[in-house]
């Protein structure tokens, strides 16, 4: 559940970018930051583990202003994709309100996508949440690699693997080029705020 301060009328929304390692979660946030940092007036924070090379998580907070009397603050997080950092992923998921699942469209990553989605379900279950109730969208990233002759999974196949049951909004994208990065972000914010509002009423 989002942090809501009824007295000061502030709603804090936590959105987590989840997915397999090297799938483009950080690239999504970097694009948003690079393109809009002057408008959102925010800094992107990248946290590394102490004395180690490993990226712990990325964090990009920003305000979207007052909507219907409530000031809405968005916090974007990424999780480390590596399998061994599950405890960190679970920790970042604490209090999550909305999720962007960034799948890697490269053909060689098919199995990793499925594993990562399963891992997301397991970790959400530890907070008594599930993919049937939480707002989430899917982004099929790295679609641009097809131009370089790299084998890419067909969107229908990705939908079949990851979205055939729940049929969430999905976006073929290229985080490097910025294709559908903003569409994905707008959609998850809309869905999440609507869901929070629904819970409040």
């Amino acid at each position: 559940m989002a942090f809501i301060n009824l007295k000061s009328k502030i709603i804090q929304v936590k959105i987590v970018y989840y997915g397999p390692g090297r799938g483009g979660k950080t690239t999504n946030l970097e694009y948003i930051y690079r393109k809009f940092h002057q408008r959102i007036k925010s800094e992107m924070v990248t946290v590394k583990t102490h004395g180690d090379r490993t990226l712990f998580f990325d964090f990009l907070p920003f305000d979207i202003g007052v909507i219907n009397g409530y000031q809405i603050k968005i916090q974007l997080y990424t999780v480390p994709g590596q399998v061994k950092y599950n405890a960190t992923r679970r920790l970042v998921l604490r209090g999550v309100d909305g999720i962007v699942f960034v799948a890697d469209a490269m053909a060689v990553r098919r199995e990793k996508n499925i594993q990562a989605l399963k891992n997301l379900q397991e970790n959400l279950a530890s907070y008594k949440k599930n993919l049937h109730t939480i707002p989430w969208v899917i982004q099929y990233n790295k679609m641009d690699l097809v131009e370089q002759g790299i084998p890419i999974l067909d969107v229908d196949l990705l939908e079949h693997d990851l979205n055939r049951e729940l049929k969430r909004p999905s976006f073929p994208a290229s985080a490097v080029k910025g294709t559908n990065v903003v569409a994905t972000l707008k959609k998850i914010i809309s869905l999440t705020v609507a869901s929070i509002r629904k819970e409040l009423l």
Partner: peptide, 28 residues
């Protein structure tokens, strides 16, 4: 899920605000 609430004033206000904040008319 939220698509059903698309037409309400809050959703419209939010979408307008997001369009304004994240308009991509400038080069990256």
């Amino acid at each position: 899920m939220a698509d059903s609430s698309k037409s309400d004033p809050l959703s419209t206000a939010l979408d307008n605000r997001l369009d304004e904040l994240f308009r991509e008319d400038e080069p990256t």
